[in-house]
């Protein structure tokens, strides 16, 4: 096979990986602050994807335009979920939180199955078949737009956590729960806010993903696992780690699809996960837990 096929696939994997990264960023933010593992993450992703499909088919709105409103909807959903359901479980054992979110995930995925049916749904935008030619490389326009959007949202998030008052307050909660309570931060509200922000990341990622891949309800659990793999690979709680992990997994999947078979993709992603868990459990960019 000529070398440019590999290059083409690698670039395509890189671009998809950035969208994966944004999705995983949501999981990472939630875990980094609230210390709850969102087992319904992929299901929230497919909710966003279905919203984008609906907006496109009913109102004719472009998914990339719908990114912001869909992120807002998911923000409200995430906020409500944390404030109403997960909040009381913050100090419960890990396995109970896990099971609570598994229950949420099971409900979400099957409600989607009932509402939308098992068939794949997608969007056909005006630029669906456009591509850029860079030398010998041919790059899908949709993936470029989606990746750029993912980078923009991630950058906005970095700025938010670094420079705004609320962002700093959230980081304070993550650093020292008791300390944050002592200085009078409304931790419960900040947790809900964080969960909302994490969900909004997924919302934005979902809206972008629709232009790359068709959505079915069964994508939900698959994306949950994928988000875990990415976040653990990159470092749970690390924001750059999530993006890096996304790119790494995106490219690995693309290469595995090319060199072996598309169905072997997840196997390679999980192989990376197992290696990381065994040899660098804190993840590539993660800090060693005390």
């Amino acid at each position: 096979m000529p070398i440019d096929i590999y290059l083409n696939v690698a670039v395509s994997g890189l671009l998809t990986g950035l969208v994966y990264g944004l999705m995983a960023l949501g999981l990472s933010v939630i875990f980094g602050v609230v210390r709850v593992v969102n087992f319904a993450h992929g299901e929230m992703m497919t909710i966003a994807m279905y919203l984008a499909v609906l907006a496109f088919s009913v109102l004719g709105l472009d998914p990339l335009v719908m990114m912001v409103p869909i992120a807002a909807v998911l923000f409200v959903f995430g906020y409500a979920l944390q404030a109403g359901l997960i909040g009381p479980f913050i100090n419960k054992p890990e396995h109970m939180q896990f099971i609570l979110l598994v229950a949420v995930a099971v409900i979400l995925v099957n409600v989607q199955l009932i509402v939308f049916g098992p068939d794949a749904r997608g969007v056909q935008t005006a630029y669906s078949y456009d591509s850029f030619a860079v030398g010998k490389l041919i790059i899908d326009a949709t993936k470029v737009y989606a990746a750029l959007a993912a980078l923009t949202v991630s950058a906005a998030l970095f700025v938010f956590f670094r420079f705004t008052e609320v962002g700093k307050a959230i980081r304070a909660c993550a650093d020292n729960y008791t300390g944050a309570l002592v200085v009078g931060l409304d931790v419960r509200r900040l947790y809900a806010l964080t969960f909302g922000i994490g969900a909004a990341c997924v919302g934005a990622a979902g809206a972008m993903m629709v232009v790359i891949i068709d959505v079915t309800p069964s994508l939900g659990p698959a994306y949950t696992l994928l988000a875990f793999v990415i976040v653990i690979t990159g470092g749970l709680g690390s924001m750059p780690g999530a993006l890096l992990g996304g790119v790494l997994i995106g490219m690995t999947e693309a290469m595995a699809g090319l060199l072996f078979s598309p169905s072997a993709k997840t196997m390679f992603a999980f192989a990376i996960l197992v290696l990381v868990l065994l040899f660098r459990p804190q993840g590539i960019m993660g800090k060693r837990a005390a």
Binding site: E94, F98, S263, M267, P281
Partner: peptide, 30 residues
């Protein structure tokens, strides 16, 4: 052995068990 020797516990352990089950699923598919 892998999990307990390398200190994989809690949520990480749970995800490791999922990973092996996924391996088996893809493996048996082929």
């Amino acid at each position: 052995f892998l999990a307990f020797r390398f200190g994989v516990s809690g949520v990480y352990f749970a995800i490791l068990t999922i990973a092996f089950c996924e391996f088996a699923r893809v493996g048996f598919d082929h």
